[in-house]
């Protein structure tokens, strides 16, 4: 079947839980070190060395936590929906597992983005919460995560659970552009994005470089925690297989 060879080899290898378990084991230490370095450098720079904002003073430093987490909460959602779609189309079990593992990580970061936003809103806008388009669409994102997690755990069969959550995740994908463009489509208190592809940031480099470092650091953080969860999920589902048994015997010594 020559016609089937249009997909790269690694794509098929990814479908093997054993291969995935081994490759993530090799990648984890590197990503963990990168995460630690990037987050520490970004935080020290952002908290101690970046200049204060001329209007908001030092409360603006919450940006160094708020923007990366809000950004990741959306990126993780997109990752989850894509993994879910791959699982639906190619019946790839590893993709189903990735989608399932994304949900709790994304939910925790969505909570953090909402919480840091509320804490930042108090000194800046004078209110913890306003029913503003950006804030409301972000709250909907959190509820989507909760819905996906609840649906996944409510269905007994693993493949049916994966299919239903993938469909829900894909439907909920419509919320992502709404979050992105909410600050332009409606009158909102929330400021527009710091980073745009087409323009230079309005901030001085001393402010936006640490922010960029932290965004990259949070991407690596997501990779680390996703791989950790994925490895657990692989072990759990493959527990009866001979390779997991061998691995366990080695652990026992």
């Amino acid at each position: 079947m020559a016609g089937k060879n249009w997909m790269p080899r690694w794509f098929y290898q990814l479908a093997s839980p054993k291969w995935c378990y081994q490759i993530t084991g090799k990648l984890l230490p590197g990503f963990a070190i990168a995460t630690l370095l990037l987050i520490v450098v970004g935080l020290v720079w952002g908290l101690a060395f970046a200049p204060p904002d001329y209007q908001q003073g030092n409360s603006f430093r919450i940006i160094y936590l708020h923007v990366p987490t809000a950004y990741m909460a959306q990126s993780i959602y997109v990752t989850m929906a894509i993994a879910g779609a791959i699982g639906l189309i190619w019946k790839m079990k590893v993709a189903d597992m990735v989608a399932k593992c994304c949900a709790p990580i994304g939910a925790s970061l969505a909570i953090l983005a909402l919480a840091t936003g509320a804490i930042w809103g108090k000194p800046t806008w004078g209110s913890w919460w306003v029913w503003d388009a950006r804030l409301t669409s972000m709250l909907i994102l959190l509820f989507l995560y909760f819905g996906i997690m609840a649906l996944n755990s409510a269905i007994e069969s693993e493949s049916t659970a994966a299919q239903s959550t993938a469909v829900l995740a894909l439907v909920g994908l419509v919320n992502i552009p709404i979050i992105q463009y909410s600050v332009y489509w409606w009158n909102t208190l929330h400021q527009p994005s710091t980073f745009k592809i087409t323009e230079k940031p309005a901030m001085p480099p001393d402010m936006w470089i640490p922010l960029l470092i932290l965004v990259i650091g949070f991407y690596c953080f997501f990779a680390v925690t996703l791989m950790m969860r994925l490895r657990n999920e692989i072990l759990r589902r493959e527990r009866r297989s001979s390779w997991v048994r061998e691995l366990l015997m080695q652990q026992r010594g």
Partner: peptide
């Protein structure tokens, strides 16, 4: 933090809890 200590440090404390939790729970 120029009088904003409560807001800044409570944010970052929450952040630390969420990040550490995301690593410790899978372990």
């Amino acid at each position: 933090m120029g009088g904003h200590a409560f807001y800044v440090w409570s944010s970052f404390a929450l952040g630390l809890i969420v990040l550490v939790g995301n690593v410790v729970l899978p372990m």
